[in-house]
Design a protein around this nucleic acid. Structure first.
Lengths: 201, 201, 201, 201
DNA sequence: TATGAATGAGATTTCATTCAT
DNA sequence: CATGAATGAAATCTCATTCAT
C-alpha cells in the first residue's frame, strides 16, 4: 500500500503536532492516525506503542541534547576555578550553542521539556537537573575549599533547577532564535554570578 | 442520610489526598467518592463537577494567597525606590510571611501549584506571574527612569517567572516550615539583587 | 433507568450463556452486554471487570462445591480403614450427593470445570485434585502401614486426577440427573476398588 | 534470500516452542516469526495460515500416532477374548510401545494433546476416544455375549475417555521416558481389569 | 441530600490476515 | 521466496457525567 517512509514520516509529523498541541498524555493515537491517513495498527507495527512513537519523534534531538550537556559538564568539571571571577558575557559561547541546538529542533525540544507528561521522558528535566547537580556539586566543593567557604546544598540544587527552568522559559516565551540568543545571555550571567555569590556561604 | 457538612468535608479531604497523590487529571472521581463513602452523584450535587470539587479544595488557601500577593504587590508599587540599595536580608520579613501562608496550607498549595494540570487552575502560576509582571513592570520603570537606564522586558518577565518557580521548588523540596524559611531567604536575596542588576540594562 | 436487580440478573444470565457457549476466554463482554441490553460500562460498575462477572456467575455453586468437598475429605480422613474391604455400592450415597449438587447448578458447574480457561478459576480442577491428593495421601499411608505395603505416589496422584476427570466426563456426557446418578455409581466403585488394588503396591 | 527449507524448519521449530509454551490460541504469529527471523507473510506463503503452521508442526507425529492406534485397534478387534482372564502385566508391551512413540516426539504430542485449543486439532482427544469407543464396543459386545452379560454403554465410553486422559496425565506429569514406562504399567493393568469388571454388567 | 444505575465516548492494544512488490 | 506495510475488527477497560428516584 503506501510507502513505508512516507507513512512513517507522516505519522511522526502528525504525532509531533498533536504532542505539541495537547501533550503526550492527552494525545490520541486514533486522532494522530486518522490525521495521517492510517489506522492505529500501523503505529504498533512501526513503533511498538504510543511511547515508541513518542520516542521516534524526540529521539535525535534528545541524544544531541545529551551530547551537548555531557560535553558542557565535562568542561565545567575540568576547569580550574580557584582564581575565577565572573565577568558578564563569560558564558555567551555556551549560550549560543545551547540555543542553536534547542531552536534547530524547536518542536521536539518543546515536546521533550514541556509536553512529555505521561511518557517515558516525563522526568527529563529532573534527570538533567540531577546531572547538573552532580557536576556543580563538584565544582562548588572545590571552589568553596579554595576560598574557605561552605556550600549551601539547597542553593546548589536550586541553581541547577532554575538553570533548566530558564531554558524552558526561553523556549516557551521566545520563538525567534536570534532573540533567544540575546535573551538568554543576561540570564546566564545572572546564574553564574549568583552561583558564586549565593551557593557559597 | 449523612449530614451534608460532614459528607462535604469528607469529600474534600479525600479529594485533597487524591489530587496530591496523582494530580487533578489522573484523579478518579469514583475513587475519591468510594474513599469518602459516597457516590459520584454526591459530587455533582454538591460541587457541580470535578472542577468544582477541585475549587472547593483549594478555594480558601487560594484566596489567602491572592490576598497576600495583592498586599505585597501594593506595597511594592508604593515604595519609593529611587535611592534603593539592596542589602541581604532585606526581604526576610516577606519570606517569612509567604512561607508561613504556604506551609499553613501545604497540601492545598502543592495541589494548586504542582498538581493542577487539567483543572481550571492549571495556569495559576502563569496568572501569578502576570500579576508580578505588571507590578514589577511599574517598579522597574520608575527605577530605571530614576537611574537613566532601560528595562529589559524579557528579564523582567523572567524574574517574575523564577520567583514563582522558586516558591514551587521550595514547596516540593522542603517539607519543614522552619527549614523552608531559612532556605528561601538567600533565594530572595538573590532574586532582589539580580533584579537590580539584570532587569535594568 | 433500569432496575438494578433486573439488569444484574440479565447480565449474569447472558454471561452464563456466553461462557457456556464459548468459554471464558473467547467470551466477549461487548456481546454479553449487547445481549443484555446494556453497555460494557455497566459490567464495570456492577462487577469490576470480566473476572468479577465470571465470579458472580459461579460464586454460589462454587462455594457449595467446596463445602461438600471439604466435608467429604474430612470424613475420608477420619475413617478407620484398617479392616476395609470394598463392596460395590459402598459410595452410592456420596455419588448421589455430589451429582445432586452438580446437576442442581449444571450450567455453572460446566463453566467452572470445563469453560473457565483464562479466568481466575482456570485451575480449579487442579486445586481440587491437590485437595484430594493430600487427603488420599493420608488415607493411603495409613492403609499401607496397616497392611505392610507401600504407596505408589504416581498412582495416588493419578487416582485423584481421574476422579475429577470422571466428574467432568459425567457432566459433559449426561445431562439427565437421574441417569447421571446411575452412571456415576459404577465409576465410583471402580475408583475405590482400584485405589485399594493399585495405589498400594 | 534464505533457503526455503532452512526457513521452514526454523519456523516450525519456533512455532513448536511457542505452542508448547502458551498453547495454540495464545500463540502470536508475529512473535513466532520474529523469533524465526522472518515475517508473518512467510507463514502465509509456506503454510497458508496459523492452522497450517500448527499442522506442519504436528503432522508427522500425529500420523505415527494414528498408525499405532490403528494397529492397536485392529489387533484388539481380532483377538478372541472368549476365554480371556486379565493378568497383571498383560499389556506391558503396548505400554512400552505407546510411551516410546509419545516420548520420541514429546513436544509435538504435548502440543497435540494438551495445547491445541483453538486449532483444527483441538478435539483430537475426542476423536481418539471415538475410535477407541468403536473398537471397544465391538470387543465388549463379543465378550459380553460369550459370558451372557450386557454392556454398560456409559462405562464403555468412560473407559475410552480415561484411557486417553491417562496418557495425557502421564505426558504432563512425567518427563522421563523410562519412568513413564514404569508409571503407565499399573495404569493399564487397572484399565484392563476395570474394563472386564465394570463395562460388563 | 444523596444514591445507584447506566451511558457513551473514549482510551490503548493485539492479532490474524492480505497483498503489492 | 519472502518482505514490509497496513488493515480492520475486535478486545478490555476507564471515566466524567446524567438522572430518575
Amino acid at each position: 500500500m503506501g510507502e513505508s517512509n512516507e507513512s512513517r514520516e507522516r505519522l511522526i509529523s502528525c504525532a509531533k503536532a498533536e504532542f505539541l498541541r495537547v501533550g503526550y498524555q492527552k494525545a490520541s493515537l486514533r486522532h494522530i492516525c486518522t490525521e495521517a491517513g492510517l489506522t492505529t495498527g500501523a503505529v504498533y507495527f512501526m513503533f511498538g506503542d504510543k511511547n515508541g512513537l513518542f520516542g521516534a519523534v524526540v529521539e535525535k534531538p534528545l541524544s544531541e541534547l545529551f551530547a551537548l550537556l555531557g560535553q558542557h559538564i565535562a568542561e565545567e568539571k575540568e576547569e580550574d576555578m580557584s582564581a575565577y571571577t565572573h565577568i558578564k558575557g563569560d558564558h555567551d559561547a555556551f549560550a549560543q550553542e545551547i540555543v542553536e541546538l534547542l531552536y534547530e529542533n524547536y518542536d521536539e525540544m518543546m515536546i521533550l521539556l514541556d509536553k512529555s507528561q505521561g511518557s517515558e521522558y516525563e522526568n527529563l528535566p529532573d534527570r538533567i537537573i540531577a546531572m547538573l547537580d552532580e557536576c556543580y556539586g563538584v565544582v562548588a566543593q572545590r571552589f568553596a575549599k579554595s576560598r574557605g567557604r561552605r556550600v549551601n546544598e539547597y542553593m546548589l540544587h536550586y541553581m541547577s533547577h532554575i538553570q533548566v527552568e530558564s531554558i524552558i522559559h526561553l523556549l516557551t516565551h521566545e520563538r525567534d532564535k536570534q532573540k533567544a540568543v540575546e535573551n538568554i545571555k543576561p540570564v546566564f550571567d545572572m546564574l553564574v554570578s549568583s552561583f558564586v555569590e549565593y551557593v557559597l556561604e
